[in-house]
Amino acid sequence: MVDLEQLIEDYLRYLKIDIESPSLNYLQRLIQQHLSRIPYETFSKFHYYKEKTNFVPALDVFVKNLIERGWGGTCYTLNINFSRLLSHLGFPVSLVRVTPGHLAIMVTLEKRQFYVDVGYGSPIMKPVELEAKRRHVLHGFGEEIIFIQKSTDRFEIDRRSNGKSFVKKEIEWCPLTEEDIQSDIMKSYIDDDQNTTMRRITAVRFNGHECYFLRDRSIKVMTYRNIREIQMRDIDKWKTTIQEVYQIDENSLDESIQFLSERGVALFGK
C-alpha cells in the first residue's frame, strides 16, 4: 500500500519546498524548484522502455527513482508526475497536448488558466496566462521563448536562440486526462531511427545562473552572458562529469550506453 502523504512529503522535500495552500506565487516557486532540482533526461526513458511495464512511471516509482537514482525524465514523465503532485496539493490541473510530440499542464487558479511546463528542457520558469494577451515572451540562458495565439484554443510556442527559431510547436489549449494521451506516450517510445529521442542521450538541468545541456558527448554550459562547451571523448570523464552535473547514478549511464550500442549508436567506439 502506497502512503500517499509520505510520497508527497518526499517529493516536496526533494524540491526543498514546503506544503502551502494553492496560489500563483506557490505555483511559480514549485516550477522554479522543479526545473532546478530535477533534470530533463533520457537515461530513464531508455530504462522504462526496456522494462515495458509502464512507460510513464507511477508517482511512487517516479519519486523513488528521483531520490535513489537522480532521474527526472522527458516531457511525459516530468509533466504527468508534476501534474499529479499539483493535484494532490489542491491545484485544479489538466494535461494539454503540444504537437508534435510534447505534453504540458493547464492549471486553473481564480478562474484563470495558466500554461505550466517542467518537461521541455527550457527555462519556462513561471506559469504563463496564455489568454491574457496575444503574445508572451520569456528569456533565459540565451533562449527566447515566444507564445503567440493562433486561434481561440491554439497557441504557437517558438523557441529561439540568437534570434533564430530552432523548434516550434503548437499548444492545443484543451484540457485532457492521462487516458486521453496514452497514444501520444506510445508514439514517443517508438524504437526506430526516425525517433531521435530514442537514439541519443540528452539531459538538461538549470542550476542557479547556469544551464547545462548534454547531447551525447558534449555539454553546453549556458549563462545569461555566454556559452561554453565541454567535450568528453573519454568514457571515464563522461561518466564523472555527468554524475557531477546531473547526479545520475552510474548504472543508468552504463545502461544507456548499452541501449544505444544495441541500436548501432556507439558513443565511445565499437
Rank of each mutant, 00 (worst) to 15 (best):
D3R: 01
D3P: 01
L4E: 14
Q6R: 13
I8N: 07
I8K: 10
L12S: 02
Y14C: 02
D18W: 05
I19E: 09
P22N: 10
S23I: 07
N25E: 15
N25A: 14
L27W: 02
L27H: 00
Q32Y: 08
Q33H: 15
Q33E: 15
H34C: 05
R37I: 04
R37D: 05
P39Q: 05
T42H: 04
Y49H: 11
T53H: 12
V56A: 04
V56H: 00
N65Y: 03
N65E: 15
I67A: 00
R69W: 08
R69Q: 08
R69I: 07
G72N: 02
G72H: 03
G72I: 01
T74I: 09
T77D: 13
L78T: 09
N79E: 03
I80N: 02
N81M: 01
N81C: 05
F82S: 00
S83N: 08
S83R: 11
L86C: 01
G90A: 05
G90F: 03
V93H: 05
S94A: 10
S94G: 07
S94Q: 08
V96R: 06
V96F: 05
V98F: 02
P100F: 05
H102V: 01
L103G: 06
L103A: 04
A104R: 02
E110D: 15
Y115E: 04
D117A: 03
G121D: 00
P123S: 01
I124D: 09
V128S: 10
E129W: 08
E131K: 15
R134M: 13
R134T: 11
H139Y: 13
H139D: 11
I146G: 04
I146H: 08
F147I: 03
F147K: 05
S151G: 13
T152H: 14
R154K: 05
E156G: 15
I157H: 04
R159L: 14
R160E: 15
N162I: 10
F166H: 07
E172L: 15
W173T: 03
L176N: 12
D180C: 02
I181R: 07
I181K: 06
I181W: 06
S183D: 14
I185Y: 02
D191W: 06
D192W: 04
D192P: 06
D192L: 00
N195F: 00
R199K: 12
R200T: 10
R200P: 10
R200K: 14
I201D: 10
I201R: 00
T202M: 14
V204R: 00
G208P: 00
M222H: 12
M222S: 13
Y224H: 12
Y224Q: 13
R225C: 08
I227Q: 13
I230A: 04
I230M: 06
Q231P: 11
D234N: 15
K237Q: 15
T241S: 08
E244G: 08
I248T: 06
N251V: 12
S252A: 09
L253Y: 06
D254S: 11
S256L: 03
I257A: 09
Q258G: 12
G264Y: 07
K270N: 14
